[in-house]
Design a protein around this nucleic acid. Structure first.
Lengths: 332, 332
DNA sequence: TTGTAAGCGTTATCAC
DNA sequence: GTGATAACGCTTACAA
């Protein structure tokens, strides 16, 4: 069907090796005219390298295999893939994502990926979590992205939630806010860590939180749980020591908090500053007023993952926390 | 490195062919004990099929190659991939996405995909558009998803924008609304078609639009253009014949319209019904009140694409319009 | 500068 | 039932 090296060799009256050298071998020496002629014939025949054939020879396909643990659902999570892709491309590698969904377990999906003999393999989670990888699987995974391998057997790249919460809290304090409430995501690692950063930073400033409340009754990812935001915000704003700032578990929560504050008649940021996490761009930039939020380092995690996989470096810490970036808009 | 059939054959004291038959050949006849023994050894050695080797033999890798024309940016557009993936999986095919971005042209990305010798190839756009595929490329693409090949050389799967707008318009009329305005996305194929459906349906009912206005100054995808929503909504609501319903170009526009209506002091849906397109779930379901909107058939397009590619059917129309689905919430 | 030949892991053909 | 053996398209020693 598709043209092969031998087709070209035959047409050009040279050996296969010469064709291979002309098309792929960068430094192979041969007359320029032979090379030019071969290239011309290749074009004419519509020759496209057969990577499968090369792969069987070399033992691997130019791929980075990614096992993604939830169907890619969050818009910013695709940033992980973009980061990987950009960095992989400079090494002439393509990124190959296989989703873990339904009742497929990590082991079988990882095996499915490995059947393609990727050059390297990564595991990516769509939200920050702890993952228990069976030991025999762990050695087949080069790096974990947006999640931490529970026993520290695999290099894990995660967002530095605590530092982000600390930075945003400091930002609120610097803006003169003193009575800060936190409406958080319950039951999530990210939420817990953000809460720690929030509390400790406030404590350092000699302050106590006005309140720390859950945005929903159950974990936001596990269920379309009923929202508690409206009742919490109403109660907070009616209290004597009502907050002058609300920190939100993420941008979606912030969106609901905006709606709740409007109902209550509070204005942002005059009455209450609102700040958040994620920088889910379509929400954060379109809210009124645009939302000040900490941007997740998804792209950076993807890029760093590719670099680690390509460097095959050994040493270094197993858990690496990447910084968020403060995106100032007008809600603080 | 990785175990191969011959490693297993050696250990088991049988020929390679026997091993291959035992592990892959469904109907190959051999003693059950031989088969069991071989499987055991394969497990022990951690054998994983080498698809590259199989691929060089068969001429193709079990992949559906997808060229995606914008970096996957919209959260619901990943639904296309999910739909493809689900349908491809039943044929034991994996989906391999390669993004068109930066200054890479369709031809070179398509070639990059074809180097992997996919079983079939598709082109997917992240928003509904017309695409001009060079003729020599067109024959290498099995199906276009969410876009139409300009010359009708390739089967193209697109959302039926006109029908969706017609249905939503009828829905508004059925709810007793008579003075409908449309705040649309300018310069987009989807927007233009929706406008046609809107206008003709209204005309059939003997009505005229209160207004048809652009949400932004320029096409929403081409630029972070300044929003016109607030000024339009303010003007509309102050006019004598103010609308009792606003149809929105998409859910993001709807989000801004909500904010604008709140500013103006209009309540949804009592004063004004709001309806939209896309069903961008995180926005539509979290707005207050939750938004009634037409869900794009992304998943269905992906699924149908896989079916078409696998069936390799010839006939049938080149342009196939898939229906949206009305998602009723509480904004109408 | 070019050709020959071996080998990668798989599947398929054909004889035993 | 099973075992050699060839073939797929490519890369790479080794020769010429």
């Amino acid at each position: 069907m598709a043209a092969s090296l031998s087709d070209i060799a035959e047409r050009a009256g040279v050996s296969i090796k010469t064709v291979s050298g002309a098309l792929h071998g960068g430094s192979a020496r041969m007359s320029d005219e032979t090379r030019a002629k071969i290239k011309e014939i290749a074009d004419e025949l519509g020759y496209v390298t057969n990577l499968a054939a090369r792969g069987v020879r070399q033992g691997w396909l130019p791929l980075i295999g990614v096992v993604a643990d939830e169907l890619i659902t969050s818009p910013f999570a695709t940033e992980i893939i973009r980061g990987l892709d950009g960095a992989a491309r400079s090494a002439e590698l393509a990124v190959f994502v296989m989703n873990l969904g339904g009742n497929r377990d990590v082991g079988s999906v990882l095996e499915e990926v490995r059947r393609f003999r990727p050059r390297a393999t990564a595991f990516a989670a769509m939200y920050h979590k702890t993952v228990a990888l069976p030991p025999e699987l762990a050695k087949n995974v080069g790096v974990m992205i947006n999640c931490r391998e529970v026993d520290g057997r695999v290099i894990s790249l995660v967002p530095d939630e605590e530092a982000a919460a600390a930075e945003m809290t400091r930002h609120l304090l610097a803006a003169g806010r003193r009575r800060v409430a936190f409406i958080n995501l319950p039951g999530l690692l990210a939420g817990d860590l953000r809460e720690q950063g929030f509390r400790s930073t406030l404590a350092e400033a000699g302050l106590a939180p006005v309140a720390v409340l859950p945005a929903v009754r159950r974990a936001i990812y596990s269920d379309r749980a009923p929202s508690l935001v409206l009742s919490h915000v109403t109660a907070l704003m009616q209290a004597a020591d009502r907050p002058d700032a609300i920190l939100c578990g993420n941008d979606r929560v912030a969106m609901e908090i905006y709606a709740a504050l409007r109902r209550v008649g509070a204005s942002i940021p005059d009455d209450v500053a609102v700040a958040s996490f994620d920088n889910q761009i379509e929400i954060a930039s379109r809210l009124d007023p645009p939302l000040t939020t900490m941007a997740l380092p998804h792209r950076a995690m993807g890029r760093l993952a590719a670099e680690i996989l390509l460097a095959e470096e050994a040493g270094g810490p197993m858990l690496r926390k990447l910084p968020f970036q403060l995106v100032e808009r007008s809600s603080v």
